[in-house]
Design a binder for these strands. Structure first.
Lengths: 225, 225
DNA sequence: GCTGCACTGATTGTCAACAATCTGGAGCAA
DNA sequence: TTGCTCCAGATTGTTGACAATCAGTGCAGC
């Protein structure tokens, strides 16, 4: 919840363009599969094509765009196979993060985890199951566990590339899913496993949690485009 | 063993520069922590700074270089914490790849796996435990399992970013490790679990295999710089 | 003798023009 | 009508020059 949006004043135009493009893609301002015209985007952002190309190269590394030499870049299309792949990778990585967090997290961090859960629950009760809040709270929870793993590579992967893809997915299905309460319950179980320093159980529960989320989303996608 | 080296004639200068830089970093031609001067590299590669900057941006996404705005890029330094992170991530991802491969691989692919193992064993017997062959055979094995998972994101991660980091690590420790025979034995067990379509066991064995490899390398690094 | 500051040199970031390549359509032949 | 070829326009790839920023050095002041 930090590295992407902190301030308008990034260091270089490439970086500014990078976060702006990311935002545009994740929110759907740039539709899936849409072609990214360098000239068009450069003028829209008020910069030259040089920095913009670097930004596109960066987003390509984050799997947000696919680039074909001499043919341009397009916004990635989140079809079902790709999302299935994403959730499987998350299952593996977040499971591992959970296992390590159970061993590495400080008591203060664990306390914060429960604070997040309580706040999350209040939000759900207040605006009865508004999916948007669910998402934000969900992100916070998963992010804190990633950080708790003390594994910088895991943190980068989960909070960087995969996180943006997940946001992109949620932006398109947020109006559907109503899994807030069972998800919260699972979060609590995970937090308790971490509090008891039970890495095996924490990993198992996280993997079930993500696997279950995919089953839910997968079903929804059956009936919706 | 394909996407990186196919032919000298890549499509764009950026891509050419990218593979050449990758090669230079992995082989140690560019030392760890060394600064990458854009002007210098550009003249050495006979190209302009524009494409070179894009290549550096790409390598940054692969974690082969770290870039600081207005201060330049440096080759990543593989210190112990970073390698620990890398092996943990591999444990999670390759474990998952193994689980999925046990479910998804065709019988022909499984047969190929055993062919690889036999060839690998012959190589070890021929040049008694020459670590270099071990590495190549090891890469082939892990790569085939990743492909067998049918998960493109897993394949990209394992055969792309993480693969290069691992190669880089091996290039520096290849003259030490003598774990070829136990590793081969573990590979066989993994292949058999896959052949029996036992995803749970396949994942468990792969995780143990990687975790054990890390313990071995970690110990070696205690005594060596 | 030590600290702080301005200057200089080098390096990175940015730009606009030029060259190479691809896409789409008009025209022609079968 | 259908399929191919060739051309034109547009888009991407590349370049060299220019501007902004940083690191190291030498000097002045305390």
């Amino acid at each position: 919840m930090s590295a992407q949006l902190d301030l308008d004043e990034e260091r270089t135009l490439s970086d500014k363009a990078s976060v702006r493009l990311t935002q545009a893609i994740v929110t759907g301002e740039l539709a899936q599969g849409q072609k990214l015209s360098e000239a068009d985007l450069a003028t829209r952002f008020g910069i030259s094509r040089g920095p913009l190309r670097e930004a596109i190269r960066e987003l390509e590394g984050m799997r947000l765009v696919t680039r074909i030499p001499h043919a341009g870049a397009r916004v990635v299309t989140l079809d079902k196979p790709m999302l299935a792949d994403l959730y499987r990778v998350r299952e593996a990585l977040e499971g591992m993060a959970c296992r390590m967090a159970a061993q590495e997290m400080s008591q203060a961090e664990i306390d914060t985890l429960f604070v997040l859960l309580n706040r999350h629950e209040e939000e759900i009760n207040a605006a009865d199951g508004l999916a948007y809040f669910q998402s934000e709270g969900d992100f916070d929870f998963h992010f804190h566990i990633a950080v708790g793993s003390r594994n910088q590579m895991l943190i980068d992967l989960l909070a960087g590339e995969l996180y943006q893809l997940l946001r992109m997915c949620r932006y398109r299905t947020s109006h559907l899913a109503k899994r807030t309460r069972p998800a919260l319950q699972q979060h609590r179980q995970i937090a308790e496993a971490i509090a008891e320093r039970d890495g095996d159980l924490a990993e198992l529960l996280m993997r079930r949690h993500i696997s279950g989320a995919w089953k839910s989303i997968s079903q929804i996608m059956e009936t919706n485009p």
